[in-house]
């Protein structure tokens, strides 16, 4: 059997030493799995995702991603090339004026040549069903379109694993259905944070809960 893609062992984290958010998280993401993650507001779901890509560092415990332990910024750089992170608020993620530039941002950072990047952008927009959106202005898109463009920006980097932070929160039914359909059409391993049990039933293979600073079944 393959080694798990992501392993967290006894991970603790606190923004404020008085009130730790995570208190000894043990977690594994195996190949072929899509894990749904629920938990109360402030229970540490987003914190958990940020620890995996090194935006935050644990105060204790080990974070192993793609077969290696990751401790410092330098070790997390390759993780961010291969693990795609979709932020909760697409306005945080879409910072370029046009859709094309925003989707191209990741692949260009990976050092791919412009001609290939153009193809990746077209492909990624096709996957999320937004063909022909290249020259639209990002701040004039609807909420659902912004979310899909943000997802395209992550997919254009050709990641192996996706971390999705509340991908359908605040969207209407039609937009939720589009995101659900898009995610179901992908073959990536995923960790999906959401409050919406129906959405998780449709997209995840297992659902876990963050409770009392730990990840539980």
């Amino acid at each position: 059997m393959d080694a798990p893609l992501i392993v967290l062992e006894d991970v603790c984290f606190a923004y404020d030493a008085e009130r730790p958010v995570l208190r000894g998280v043990d977690f594994r993401l195996e190949r072929g799995r899509r894990i749904g993650l629920t938990g109360a507001n402030g229970s540490g779901k987003s914190t958990f995702l940020k620890l995996i890509v090194g935006l935050l560092r644990p105060t204790r415990g080990r974070v192993c991603v793609l077969g290696e332990e990751r401790r410092v910024e330098r070790e997390f750089l390759p993780v961010r090339q291969r693990v795609g992170f979709l932020f909760q608020d697409p306005d945080d993620q879409l910072f370029c004026p046009t859709v094309e530039e925003d989707v191209a941002f990741g692949p260009l950072n990976q050092g791919r040549p412009p001609a290939e990047v153009r193809e990746l952008v077209t492909d990624a927009l096709a996957v999320v069903g937004l063909e022909g959106f290249e020259h639209r202005i990002t701040y004039r898109l609807s909420g659902g379109e912004k979310r899909l463009v943000a997802l395209a920006g992550v997919l254009a980097m050709r990641p192996e694993i996706l971390l999705l932070d509340e991908p359908v929160a605040g969207l209407d039914e039609a937009a939720q259905a589009r995101i659900t359909a898009t995610l179901c059409g992908l073959r990536h391993e995923m960790i999906i944070v959401s409050h919406d049990q129906q959405f998780l039933d449709a997209t995840a293979t297992t659902t876990l809960h963050i409770r009392d600073g730990r990840v539980q079944a």
Binding site: L77, G84, F85, F87, Q93, F95, N109, M157
Partner: peptide, 11 residues
């Protein structure tokens, strides 16, 4: 948050 999102895409 914008900066973090940029880091995640290899900035």
């Amino acid at each position: 948050r914008v900066h973090e999102a940029m880091l995640c895409r290899g900035f």
